[in-house]
């Protein structure tokens, strides 16, 4: 992104987005594409607030990570349906193409990956380890996608913990990025309940040993972006530090309560 675009991406404000496409991503989540004419673009990993207003003025706001990045006015979200939620069931079951919703963003300047600047003498590129669980893969997908589009040579790995094959977000894009992307990406899927037929790796929750085996080693000093439910992030972050990663190289986003 040009510097001017990057600066514009920090300009947070209120916007109105119109739903231009929506489709179930998995049995529990929906991909929602919005056209937001005033959107200033956003960096990979950013989020936004959605505000819904009922006829009597009642409002509900929630934060969602963006699956899209770059200078455009097209914004992509993938929303997981929370069983007892108030906003996510509306977004997954009710929101229709043509509807307009209020958005505030882009938000966040820390859980962000920026492609190395082109046209300058690059410092040795920092490898990037992405680790996500469930819908925590959304901001990490934005980084994978930005990396693929930038075509830069940074080593990228995504370790994605998901219950079974039908709950994988962005399956086609991730597999295509791992296969064809000019920037290198290694995709490690870790199925916690059930794998595809003949899946060679063990099924089950992540362990410290699996993490050590799959993640970029501490000696290569990766930047680590970690996103998922709080107990997952707490455990994995603790193991990463035990394995020798510097705490300041770990950037985390959590959702939900502590175990």
């Amino acid at each position: 992104m040009r510097v001017a675009d990057r600066l514009a991406a920090h300009r947070t404000g209120w916007h109105v987005g119109e739903v231009v496409a929506a489709a179930m991503e998995t049995p529990l989540s929906r991909r929602i594409e919005l056209e937001v004419p005033t959107w200033p673009g956003n960096e990979a990993g950013a989020h936004l607030d959605i505000r819904l207003t009922a006829p009597d003025g009642y409002q509900a706001s929630r934060a969602y990570s963006l699956a899209s990045s770059g200078p455009g006015t097209h914004v992509t979200l993938v929303v997981d349906r929370m069983e007892y939620g108030e906003v996510s069931p509306f977004l997954v079951d009710e929101l229709a193409v043509g509807d307009r919703i209020e958005l505030h963003g882009p938000l966040g300047a820390f859980f962000i990956w920026r492609p190395p600047m082109t046209g300058t003498a690059p410092a040795a590129p920092m490898p990037v380890q992405l680790i996500g669980a469930g819908s925590g893969v959304v901001p990490l997908f934005a980084m994978v996608d930005a990396h693929a589009h930038a075509g830069d040579a940074t080593e990228f790995r995504l370790l994605y913990s998901v219950r079974d094959p039908e709950h994988v977000f962005f399956r086609a894009e991730l597999e295509a990025a791992a296969r064809d992307c000019p920037g290198p990406l290694r995709l490690d899927l870790l199925y916690t309940r059930q794998g595809p037929e003949g899946w060679p790796a063990p099924i089950g929750r992540i362990t410290r040993e699996r993490l050590a085996e799959l993640a970029i080693p501490p000696a290569d000093d990766p930047t680590i972006f970690l996103c998922g439910p709080t107990p997952f992030v707490e455990m994995v972050a603790m193991w990463l530090v035990e394995l020798g990663h510097a705490p300041e190289r770990i950037r985390a986003e959590r959702f939900g309560g502590a175990a």
């Binding site: 505000r51 819904l52 207003t53 009922a54 006829p55 009597d56 009642y58 409002q59 509900a60 706001s61 929630r62 108030e86 509306f90 009710e94 929101l95 229709a96 509807d99 307009r100 919703i101 209020e102 709080t230 707490e234 959590r254 959702f255 939900g256 309560g257 502590a258």
Partner: peptide, 29 residues
């Protein structure tokens, strides 16, 4: 503006809730 189709869950909003906030029982991190 009114969001088409959105009614929300809670009608009696606790006056101790600041604008844009939702009550939780657990404790997010």
């Amino acid at each position: 503006f009114i969001t088409r189709g959105f009614s929300g869950r809670s009608r009696d909003r606790d006056p101790r809730l600041p604008p844009g906030q939702t009550l939780v029982d657990d404790w997010p991190v």
